Amino acid sequence: MFSLRNIAAALALAASAQATNLMTFVSTDNIDRTIYVTPSAGVIGPDPVDVPGGATVEVEFVSGFIGNAYAVASGSANVPGMLAEVNFQGWGGMTYFDVSAIVNPNDVDNVRLMYPANAPNTPLSGCDPFPCNNAYYLPDDVQTKVTDQTNIIVTLGSGSSNVTAKRDVNTANNGRNFPRNLVENNY
C-alpha cells in the first residue's frame, strides 16, 4: 500500500536527485583563469578550479549554495573582481543570480555574463562590453535574475559576444529584475 506520506517522500527524493547545481564557466578567449568561490557563512563551496583559455568547465555546488565566484587570469594576483553571484534552491526553490560590479567595476575581462544553460530566451545578467544597465553597481540596485534552472552559464573573457550573439545584452529586456536580498537568501 502507498500512503500519501510515502508518495510525498518519493517525489521529494526524486526532485532532489534531479537538481544538480552547476555553474558552467565558458572561456571565450585564450586566457587561462582560476575560478575562486566564496560561499556565504555556513555554506560549503568548491575548491578553486582552473579554466584553460577556450575551455568549458562545469563546477558542481551543494544544494542550497549561496555565494559567488570570480575569475583571476593566470599570472595575476588573486584579487576579487567582477562577481558571479548565485543562490541555488533559494526562495520558492528557484535559482537567483546576478553579475556584480560592486567589488571591482574595473574588472571587465573576467566574469562577463550569466544565464541559464537549459532555457533559451531566459534572463541574462551582466554586460558585454561593460558597463551596461544589466549588472549590479550599487548595493541597492535591483538586478537579480531568477530561473527554475540549476545550470548557470558564466562567460569569461573578451569573446563573450560570440557566445551570446542572439541575446541583446545591453537592454533591460533580459528578464524581470529582483532585489539583491534574494541572491543573498535574505527574504
Rank of each mutant, 00 (worst) to 15 (best):
M82R: 14
V26P: 08
N30T: 10
E60I: 15
G159N: 07
M94V: 02
N87I: 09
R167G: 07
S100P: 15
I44G: 01
D47E: 11
V142S: 13
G42C: 05
N151W: 04
A172C: 03
S158Q: 05
N174L: 04
P139T: 13
V103L: 01
P46G: 04
V154C: 06
F178R: 00
V72M: 09
N133W: 05
P39M: 07
Q18G: 10
N151T: 15
N170Y: 10
V79A: 03
E85F: 05
D109E: 01
P123T: 13
P131W: 01
M23G: 05
A77G: 11
M1S: 12
T150C: 04
N151G: 04
I152S: 03
N174T: 08
R33S: 07
P120G: 02
G90N: 00
P120Y: 01
L138M: 14
N181D: 02
F178K: 01
T144S: 09
A119S: 14
N30A: 13
P120K: 00
Q89D: 09
N186K: 14
V111H: 06
N30V: 06
S74D: 12
T24H: 03
T28Y: 09
S3E: 05
N106F: 14
V163R: 07
T56R: 10
N162Y: 07
S158P: 10
E58P: 14
P39Y: 02
E60K: 12
Q89V: 07
W91E: 13
Y187N: 12
T20V: 15
D107W: 15
D98R: 08
A77F: 11
Y136D: 08
V43N: 03
D98W: 02
S63D: 03
N173R: 05
F65T: 03
C127S: 02
S100H: 09
F97D: 04
T38Q: 11
G53V: 00
A71N: 12
T38G: 09
T28I: 00
Q149V: 06
R176T: 12
V43C: 06
I102Y: 13
Y96F: 10
P123L: 10
T164R: 10
A165N: 10
Y136Q: 14
S100F: 14
Q149K: 10
D107N: 14
P52I: 04
P120T: 00
Q89Y: 00
T171M: 08
D148I: 11
G126K: 09
T20Q: 07
V169C: 02
P105E: 11
N68V: 01
A119R: 12
V62I: 12
V43G: 00
P123E: 14
T144E: 05
S3H: 08
N21V: 01
N104D: 13
N177L: 03
F2Q: 09
F65Y: 15
S3A: 13
F97L: 06
G67P: 04
W91Q: 13
T20M: 09
D98C: 12
A69P: 03
V99Y: 01
V37E: 02
S160Y: 05
V169T: 09
V49T: 13
A69K: 03
R112I: 10
